[in-house]
Structure formats: structure tokens, C-alpha cells
Amino acid sequence: MDQPFVDTLRPHLRYLAPEQELRPEDRLRDLGLNSMQAIDLVFDLEDNCGVTLPDDQLTDANFETAGALWSAVENARSDSLTDAR
């Protein structure tokens, strides 16, 4: 998980203490991400991480943990690179 990704997530996680580290296995819902904020997060990720999350990636499973979401972002990134070629 790179810094822009973590920095994008943090404001949406009201139960993540300022000095607390975000770990891949952390469940986003337990850190305060509700369904409405998860939608805000989609847009922030697309703006800050330069990816477009395909509609079929907007699944409950991909928003379960920080690690799962990071994988979805990584996949979207490599897909868009492939598309560009």
C-alpha cells in the first residue's frame, strides 16, 4: 500500500487514530467506513491515485479490508496500462 493510497483512505476512517498505522488486514468498516463514505472514497481514489475503478470492481468484497481495496486499485492500474498499449 503506497502513501497516496493510505493518505486517501485515512480521512474516511474516523476510528483510525492519527498515529495508528493502517494494515492490509484492517477491516475498513471497523475503522468507520460506512457505505456512503465508501462511495466518496471511490471518487477520491480515482482522483488521487490516478486510476479508474471499473464498475464490476465496486463490490462489497473489495471494500472489506485495506489490502483488498489496494489490490483492486493495483489491478485497475495495470488494466489501464494494458489498455493504453
Binding site: 468498516r29 460506512n34 457505505s35 456512503m36 465508501a38 462511495i39 472514497l41 465496486l58 462489497d60 471494500f63
Partner: peptide, 25 residues
């Protein structure tokens, strides 16, 4: 609860929903 987040649109499509009782968010 989770199904009304980013997956909301997909779930509306999957269910072929014709009515949505909503709150503003």
C-alpha cells in the same frame, strides 16, 4: 448495509429494482 455502498448501482441492476425508498445520502 454494505450493499448500499459502492455496490449500490450493481445491486439495483441485479435486483431489477423499480422502487427505491431512500434517505438523502
Amino acid at each position: 448495509a454494505t450493499e448500499s455502498g459502492p455496490a449500490l448501482l450493481a445491486n439495483l441492476l441485479r435486483s431489477r429494482a423499480t422502487v427505491l425508498p431512500a434517505v438523502p445520502p
